[in-house]
Design a protein around this nucleic acid. Structure first.
Length: 752
DNA sequence: TCCGGACAGTTCTAGACAGCATGTC
DNA sequence: CTAGAACTGTCCGGA
């Protein structure tokens, strides 16, 4: 089928595709068109990565928009939202408008309603439905990317329930689900009343193989000799690709391994760089160091100078995009990564090496082989269409037996079927409340009827399981005052609040208990601990020695904690409580202006983890504040206003990462925790001071950076922000330099 | 005296969505 | 329960 044969698209779009060099549709794309994708028919496309899924989505959405409709594209990760937005923006010239909505990147609500195509995460869509966004009713087409995610115990149910709700709101909704090749795509097609397009076709050839000793065995029966002295397998593979002019992606099973591998592989890549590349890499390394001055950041920069990099969730997001971009530009020759990269933004590579195919799993306390689906996702990163002759995906065997095992287990194996995880109690807790609160079900029958529309219902034969769990969950929600049940189901004011705030009801219950328990003004640590022990916060892991260390802190600061502290003999409960304490201490350190590198060192985490924890804490404390307000309204006991004030203060402190006295200053744009502290030390203690203060003192406190200082003065609304002819005050500058060195001396005493 | 290599024992483990108000891609 | 890479510490031998 030819692009010119496509009908139903906005004017100019077929020509646009043609100009892009797309003439003949790929077979799966043609199949999707035959299934009626441009005529509003629902389709489930189960096809490999990089075989033109986005194009299928575009056909569905653009034709829908051409008919006067509105399309929604659901992405699994925030990072993918902006990537997709950029791809779709090329259609703006044909009158199609694009909008994005994710938690950290919100376009104005009304503005969003006027967009033709909206890109959002599944959680954001869920939240928009809960909050009654009007434009949801106008949708004519929804595309769900990476639907196999319904298999994920944590985030899968959200996608599942969201799709069910969207289809319920609009029964004529065209549903397009894009999935990796999975074992049971047919079941998903049944669920969504869609035509199945199931194909393993790829635009460029993918050779899969296993390395054992010196021999690389491929699935087509060929073998390649890989000369290596005492070089490690991975290094030899990377070198071989490099000599062939290609780059490699190495998947390993822990962050530490990723960092260690990058360090070692840098010795291989450094001998394969041109002078130009070396210069560009130095520049990128500098940018990396600018992102954060932690050890992780420095290690990454050092590796990048030599043409290698690591990639994992402990990196700041700026780190990640710098690495991804430089890899796409072929400057970085190899990335060693944890699975973040397999699911993340598009980073294709000539060769993919899956070094570790087992991963530690805390639930069973040992190593567990990766899912076939996961390994295939990693494989799918091999080969850049149009650039590489073919892609290569390689596993590494340590014995002859393992060679055969890996072929059977991953190379030849079909991916597992995906299974709905909806029937788990934590998932239902939040979704049942939301379903009732946003009016999708007014009785238990209606609720069960709604749940019948989920993938879970189409997959299970086991009757009664869902009913039983639903009863448990309803009891729980009733008991905690989130809903009332007689012959009907009704969410209480509190229940509505919890649903809108996107909280797990269990988190809300924990927070409410804690706030009720507070008498007087709770401390920041107490509040950080409270939110850290909710199920919505990922807790830090207790390492050796931590148990003793935090037990001691727990007793020292016992009066500060809200709610009941489990006894030391309730093993699991106590451990969890201590993990939360460790997390709370991190937040307290951050809010006490402790340097980023000290924090990463103390908790053995990366700069990205600090941002993540801080962001979550901010969100949960905001929720706590609103819950307190809600209780004030319909509860005789209420929450004392001193508590609410303390919550707000704790949230602001964690948001800016500063002590209380800097809150005013840190709110000024371009003034972060460090600059605020320097200004304060120079005697400028508030925004008002900043507007009045001697300019040379301001400049001195900001270490003579004129441009920055002018911006800041402008942002704070100073009449005449110009700093021409102003010299930095020498004494202030000297003090400022000192203040930076031992800044954040508070609360250092407890360790080492 | 210093250094590297071999060896044994120890340590530690992936990921990341959401609110709100403001101000940016 | 079902691991394994990397790090740490120690000892030895050679220069």
């Amino acid at each position: 089928m030819n692009v010119a044969d496509l009908t139903g698209l906005p004017d100019g779009v077929p020509e646009h595709f043609h100009a892009q060099g797309i003439e003949e549709l790929y077979p799966p794309q043609a199949e999707a068109v035959e299934a009626g994708i441009t005529e509003g028919e629902s389709v489930v496309a189960s096809i490999p990565t990089a075989s033109g899924k986005t194009f299928i989505a575009e056909l569905a959405m653009l034709s829908s928009v051409a008919r006067g409709g509105k399309a929604l594209y659901i992405v699994p990760l925030r990072a993918l939202a902006s990537e997709k937005k950029e791809e779709f923006e090329e259609f703006e010239q044909y009158g199609v408008s694009i909008g994005v909505s994710t938690g950290n990147y919100e376009s104005d609500g009304d503005w969003l309603a006027s967009r033709d195509i909206i890109v959002a995460t599944s959680e954001k869509v869920d939240s928009l439905v809960r909050n009654g966004a009007k434009w949801i009713d106008d949708l004519s087409c929804v595309v769900a990317d990476e639907v196999h995610l319904v298999n994920d115990a944590h985030r899968g149910p959200t996608l599942e329930v969201t799709l069910a709700k969207l289809r319920r709101v609009n029964p004529d909704l065209q549903t397009v689900a894009l999935s990796a090749t999975v074992g049971n795509a047919g079941e998903m097609a049944d669920w969504l009343d869609a035509t199945l397009v199931d194909s393993t076709w790829r635009p460029i050839d993918l050779r899969k193989g296993v390395l054992y000793g010196q021999a690389l065995h491929f699935d087509d029966g060929t073998q390649q000799e890989l000369a290596r002295g005492n070089e490690k397998e991975t290094a030899a593979l990377v070198r071989d690709t490099l000599e062939d002019g290609g780059s490699s992606l190495v998947f390993v099973n822990s962050r530490r391994n990723a960092e260690a591998a990058a360090k070692r592989l840098a010795d291989v890549t450094k001998t394969h760089l041109t002078d130009d590349e070396r210069r560009d890499l130095l520049d990128i390394a500098d940018q990396i160091r600018d992102v954060s001055d932690t050890e992780t950041s420095d290690d990454l920069a050092t590796a990048i100078e030599k043409g290698a990099a690591f990639h994992h969730a402990g990196l700041a997001s700026d780190h990640r995009s710098l690495v991804e971009d430089a890899f796409r530009d072929k400057l970085i020759k190899v990335i060693s990564a944890t699975p973040t990269l397999a699911a993340g933004v598009n980073t294709p590579s000539r060769r993919v090496i899956v070094r570790d195919w087992r991963r530690y799993d805390g639930d069973i306390g040992g190593m567990q082989p990766l899912d076939v689906l996961e390994v295939h996702q990693m494989f799918g990163r091999a080969g850049r269409p149009g650039l590489d002759p073919h892609g290569e995906a390689v596993l590494i065997a340590k014995s002859h037996d393992e060679l055969q095992e890996l072929f059977d287990q991953y190379v030849w194996a079909d991916p597992e079927p995906v299974h709905s995880k909806l029937a788990a109690e934590p998932a239902l807790r939040t979704h049942i409340l939301a379903t009732v609160a946003s009016g999708f079900a007014g009785t238990e029958e209606e609720l069960l009827d709604f749940l019948e529309r989920t993938l879970y219902a189409t997959q299970t034969d086991e009757t009664g399981r869902l009913e039983t769990v639903t009863q448990h969950v309803l009891d729980y929600l009733d008991r905690n005052g989130f809903l009332e049940r007689d012959d009907r189901l009704r969410a209480t004011g509190l229940g509505h609040r919890v649903s809108q705030l996107y909280l797990d009801p269990m988190s809300a219950a924990e927070i409410i208990d804690g706030l009720r328990d507070a008498d007087g003004k709770p401390t920041a640590l107490g509040l950080y601990h409270l939110v850290s022990r909710t199920p919505d916060m990922y807790q830090l892991y207790l390492r050796s020695g931590d148990r003793e260390r935090y037990t001691e802190i727990a007793y020292e600061r016992e009066p500060e904690f809200l709610g009941h502290m489990p006894s030391e003999f309730e093993d699991n409960a106590f451990e969890d409580w201590l993990s939360a304490l460790k997390t709370a201490r991190l937040l307290e350190d951050w809010a006490s202006e402790l340097d980023e590198d000290r924090i990463t060192e103390r908790y053995a985490i990366g700069p990205g983890d600090i941002r993540g924890k801080v962001e979550t804490a901010q969100w949960l404390l905001n929720a706590a504040e609103r819950l307190a307000a809600e209780l004030q309204r319909d509860d005789a006991e209420g929450i004392p206003s001193a508590t609410t004030t303390a919550v707000r203060e704790a949230r602001k402190r964690v948001e800016y990462g500063v002590e209380e006295e800097l809150l005013d200053l840190a709110g000024v744009r371009n003034v972060g925790r460090k600059r605020a502290r320097r200004l304060y030390e120079a005697g400028i203690e508030s925004r008002a001071d900043l507007r009045e203060a001697d300019k040379s003192v301001v400049l001195g406190a900001l270490r003579g950076r004129k441009k920055t200082a002018e911006n800041i003065l402008e942002n704070v609304g100073r009449q005449d922000p110009s700093l021409d002819d102003v010299e930095a005050d020498a004494e202030t500058a000297a003090t400022s330099a000192r203040a930076t060195n031992d800044g954040g001396q508070q609360s250092l005493g407890d360790f080492e």
